[in-house]
C-alpha cells in the first residue's frame, strides 16, 4: 500500500497528463478550423472572380478577327496599342504621339490595332474604364473610333473620382458626330462584354500595364520615335512576319 502522499502525486500526474492531452486536442481542432477558414477565404475569392467573368460577347465592326482590338489602316506592319481611357500615362502617350501613329496608318505603313482595356476599374468609383471602353466599341461600330478616342482622352477624368456617366459619354459622342444609334448602343451596354473580352485577351497576351505597344508582336517603348524606328526596321526586312 502506498502512502496518501504518493497517491496525491500520482493523481496530480494523471491530471496533468489529461490537461496536456486536452490542450493537444484543442490545438489540433483550432488549427483545422484556421486552415479551413483560409481555404474558404481563398475559394470565396475564386468564386467572386469567376462569377464576374462574362461569357458571350459581340465584337463591334472594324475590329480584328480575334475581336480583341479596333483596326485602323491596313499596312503591312501590325502595331498593337493597349490603352485604358482612365490611365494618365495613356493620355500623355495619346497627346504626344497619336497623330504620328495615325499618320503611319493613314500612309499605309501600319495596321494599327487599338485595344481599349479596362484595367483600372478600381481607380474610378463607377467603373469608368469599362464604360468608356464599351462606348468606344459603340463608336467603332459606327466607324468613328479614332475621333471618339480623341474626345475621351481630351475629357479624361482624374483617377479616384467618379468618371463621366453614360449620359456624359453619349453627349461626348455628339461632339464627334455620333448620333442616336451610338446613344442606344451605350444605353444598352451592348459592348460591355466585348470590353471584358478585350481585357482578358490583353492579360493573356502578357500585357499587365498600360500603355503597352507591340510592333509585330514585340514590345516597344510607348514613344513615337521608338515605334517609328521599330516599324521602319520591320518594313525593311522584306516579307512581313505574322504578328502573334
Amino acid at each position: 500500500m502506498s502512502s496518501r502522499k504518493d497517491q496525491n502525486a500520482a493523481a496530480r500526474l494523471v491530471r496533468e497528463q489529461i490537461a496536456a492531452e486536452k490542450r493537444r486536442k484543442r490545438t489540433l481542432y483550432i488549427s483545422i478550423a484556421a486552415v479551413s477558414a483560409l481555404v474558404i477565404a481563398g475559394l470565396i475569392g475564386w468564386g467572386v472572380y469567376a462569377s464576374s467573368k462574362s461569357g458571350e460577347f459581340t465584337a463591334p465592326r472594324n475590329t480584328n478577327s480575334a475581336g480583341s482590338g479596333v483596326v485602323t489602316g491596313s499596312g503591312p506592319v501590325t502595331v498593337d496599342e493597349y490603352v485604358d481611357f482612365l490611365c494618365p500615362h495613356c493620355k500623355a502617350f495619346h497627346d504626344d504621339y497619336a497623330a504620328q501613329i495615325k499618320q503611319l496608318a493613314d500612309t499605309g505603313k501600319i495596321t494599327l490595332v487599338t485595344h481599349p482595356v479596362a484595367y483600372l476599374d478600381g481607380a474610378s468609383t463607377n467603373q469608368y474604364s469599362t464604360r468608356s471602353s464599351a462606348a468606344a466599341g459603340c463608336a467603332a461600330d459606327e466607324g468613328r473610333f479614332t475621333e471618339y478616342a480623341d474626345a475621351l482622352f481630351a475629357a479624361q477624368p482624374a483617377e479616384g473620382t467618379a468618371g463621366p456617366s453614360d449620359d456624359d459619354l453619349i453627349a461626348l459622342g455628339k461632339t464627334v458626330g455620333l448620333g442616336d444609334p451610338f446613344a442606344q448602343c451605350v444605353k444598352d451596354k451592348k459592348f460591355v462584354n466585348w470590353t471584358d473580352h478585350v481585357t482578358t485577351e490583353a492579360g493573356k497576351a502578357g500585357v499587365s500595364g498600360t500603355p503597352t505597344v507591340l510592333v509585330n508582336g514585340k514590345p516597344v517603348q510607348a514613344t513615337g520615335p521608338a515605334i517609328a524606328a521599330a516599324v521602319a526596321a520591320a518594313s525593311g526586312t522584306g516579307p512581313t512576319p505574322t504578328a502573334s
Partner: peptide, 18 residues
C-alpha cells in the same frame, strides 16, 4: 495566375484576422 490573384487578397485578410 488569375485564380491565384483573386484568392490571395481574401486569404491575406483571413490570415490578418487570425
Amino acid at each position: 495566375a488569375m485564380i491565384f490573384g483573386a484568392a490571395q487578397p481574401f486569404v491575406e485578410i483571413a490570415l490578418g484576422l487570425l
